Simulated assay, not measured.
Amino acid sequence: MELPAAVEGKPGELLDLYAALLGPGWVAQVPAAEPEAVHALARAVRTDVPECVDTYHRTRWWTRLTPGGEGPERQLSVLSQEAQRLTADLQDREVRRQQTHTAYLEERGRS
């Protein structure tokens, strides 16, 4: 069973974003240093995205019978917003870390 065209790429986009955050290299070190980020990513990849797709497949017939009702597609939208916030938070933390390190180096250079 396929997802509707409006959301068919969403699970893949989310998983690609999560894969980029968790991939090998320095990028994965940023969320790895934040226990809440690790928890949010693990929960999203292991539970939330698969559950959204499964929910869609299990309730698809029901949403057709209730026009105007909110379908499981909304879950993917909420997860996408959460992923954007998580990414922005991690980016902000990394910027602050770099600023702190720059200030340290500048101070050390004055000594």
Rank of each mutant, 00 (worst) to 15 (best):
residue 80 S to V: 00
residue 82 E to I: 04
residue 97 R to Y: 06
residue 18 Y to M: 14
residue 28 A to V: 03
residue 53 V to Q: 08
residue 14 L to A: 09
residue 93 R to Q: 11
residue 46 R to L: 11
residue 69 G to C: 12
residue 17 L to T: 15
residue 23 G to I: 00
residue 73 E to T: 08
residue 43 R to Q: 07
residue 88 A to L: 11
residue 85 R to W: 01
residue 4 P to G: 05
residue 60 R to K: 03
residue 88 A to D: 15
residue 53 V to P: 10
residue 57 H to Q: 15
residue 69 G to N: 08
residue 20 A to Y: 00
residue 46 R to I: 09
residue 92 D to S: 12
residue 35 P to M: 05
residue 82 E to G: 13
residue 28 A to R: 04
residue 32 A to I: 08
residue 64 R to H: 10
residue 66 T to C: 04
residue 20 A to V: 09
residue 76 L to P: 03
residue 11 P to N: 06
residue 78 V to H: 02
residue 28 A to S: 14
residue 31 P to T: 01
residue 11 P to D: 04
residue 61 W to D: 13
residue 69 G to M: 02
residue 7 V to S: 07
residue 52 C to M: 10
residue 64 R to G: 13
residue 70 E to C: 09
residue 90 L to G: 12
residue 58 R to N: 00
residue 83 A to H: 07
residue 52 C to Y: 02
residue 59 T to S: 04
residue 59 T to Q: 15
residue 85 R to E: 13
residue 96 R to L: 10
residue 58 R to D: 07
residue 18 Y to F: 15
residue 75 Q to E: 07
residue 12 G to D: 11
residue 72 P to W: 05
residue 16 D to A: 06
residue 73 E to K: 03
residue 87 T to A: 12
residue 64 R to A: 15
residue 45 V to T: 05
residue 49 V to C: 06
residue 8 E to L: 00
residue 25 G to R: 00
residue 31 P to S: 01
residue 38 V to F: 02
residue 23 G to T: 02
residue 63 T to V: 07
residue 33 A to I: 03
residue 54 D to L: 10
residue 49 V to E: 03
residue 72 P to G: 09
residue 42 A to P: 05
residue 3 L to W: 03
residue 2 E to W: 05
residue 27 V to Y: 00
residue 12 G to P: 04
residue 68 G to C: 04
residue 8 E to I: 05
residue 4 P to R: 08
residue 62 W to H: 13
residue 67 P to W: 10
residue 94 E to N: 14
residue 9 G to L: 09
residue 25 G to P: 06
residue 92 D to L: 02
residue 44 A to G: 11
residue 86 L to E: 02
residue 26 W to Q: 14
residue 91 Q to M: 12
residue 92 D to W: 04
residue 37 A to N: 03
residue 82 E to C: 11
residue 64 R to K: 08
residue 20 A to N: 08
residue 72 P to S: 15
residue 78 V to N: 09
residue 14 L to P: 11
residue 50 P to S: 00
residue 45 V to C: 08
residue 59 T to G: 15
residue 83 A to M: 12
residue 75 Q to Y: 05
residue 74 R to P: 03
residue 67 P to V: 04
residue 6 A to V: 08
residue 54 D to Q: 05
residue 10 K to E: 15
residue 60 R to F: 00
residue 86 L to T: 09
residue 71 G to A: 05
residue 90 L to D: 12
residue 20 A to C: 08
residue 89 D to E: 15
residue 9 G to Y: 10
residue 64 R to D: 14
residue 21 L to F: 06
residue 4 P to S: 03
residue 34 E to H: 03
residue 87 T to E: 04
residue 13 E to D: 15
residue 82 E to Y: 11
residue 78 V to P: 05
residue 14 L to S: 07
residue 7 V to T: 13
residue 18 Y to V: 10
residue 72 P to C: 14
residue 39 H to A: 07
residue 6 A to T: 06
residue 70 E to G: 07
